[in-house]
Design a protein around this nucleic acid. Structure first.
Lengths: 160, 160
DNA sequence: CCAAAAAATGTTACATTATATCATTGCGCA
DNA sequence: TGCGCAATGATATAATGTAACATTTTTTGG
């Protein structure tokens, strides 16, 4: 779940701080801590994972309630995505590249929660949206989640 | 979440019973009861909704644990789909039409849980799968879930 | 028909994910 | 300085889901 160009977490966090400011809020120490965990983690993490992580070498210990609050805030301005199919959270892959992106599509490894965020071609979203329209439903969705196996977990039953 | 042609629940349940038999299992009274609730319901239901429903006028009262077990069984043979983004369950829309269908795509009303199941064009699934392949992920997904507003809930803020 | 095996269900306990609510702290700004 | 709002702390509880083992029901082979 890393950023597009390979940037250091601190660089990404600075972009995030600026991004918060644009939304009239601040990237407080604890928000920064949660976001940093997600940026550094290769895998999607649950709120309780993040709370647990805060108890090892982090600046502050966070209770789950605080983690949820912080995640909600980070989501609200688009720095974090919630993966509904996994009940886990990831940092947006485009924090440092000034947004204006296509609909995100998350490839989620069923086994290890490794996540890749890729863009969905507009043509695909358009077909999907128009299929929905014909049934009277209006598409709200701003992300697609797909159950996958990552390359490591896909290694087939060697010697099975 | 109704069946393609408009059929009576009993007719659909008979198809389901036959379908179970083909899989070497049986549509017991309680499985039938759960499936009937889902078929009759216009909306997706949670396991606890189904347990609750079993306490009003149904033949048997079901504990949540039983409901989960029954849902897992019905899913395993394809009579029921779980909507991961909503933590709810729906009857397959094609129980009575002898399967061989395309990947299902669920349009889920964010507000009222009304669900429409439509087929996804193979071309779309193919593009998605190949996009996944290029990142080293193998697509497992056998369904797409899309957050929508149904025609009733989409009525815009009249007089707001 | 009966006993042993398998399938289905009952029951209790518990794990995980998430929200509600009210108290407290920190911080900008008049 | 102190008012007011944003952020966080703290506790309780709700909602969703699984584990594990006991019991009942059904099937099946002798």
């Amino acid at each position: 779940m890393n950023q597009d160009p390979i940037l250091k977490p601190e660089v990404i966090l600075e972009h995030a701080a600026r991004y918060c400011a644009e939304h009239g809020s601040k990237l407080t120490t604890k928000r920064r801590q949660v976001l940093a965990s997600l940026i550094t983690s290769k895998k999607a993490l649950s709120a309780y994972d993040l709370a647990e992580a805060s108890r090892h070498g982090a600046e502050a210990t966070l209770l789950p309630m605080s983690v949820y609050r912080i995640l909600r805030f980070l989501q609200s301005i688009g720095l974090v995505h919630r993966l509904a199919t996994a009940n886990k959270y990831v940092a947006c892959a485009h924090i440092a590249c000034d947004h204006a992106h296509t609909t995100p599509q998350f490839l989620i490894c069923k086994i290890c929660s490794d996540v890749k965020e890729v863009g969905v071609a507009n043509s695909i979203i358009d077909s999907i949206a128009s299929a929905a329209e014909t049934t009277g439903f209006r598409l709200l969705n701003d992300q697609l989640e797909l159950e996958c196996l990552c390359s490591e977990c896909a290694v087939p039953e060697l010697g099975a």
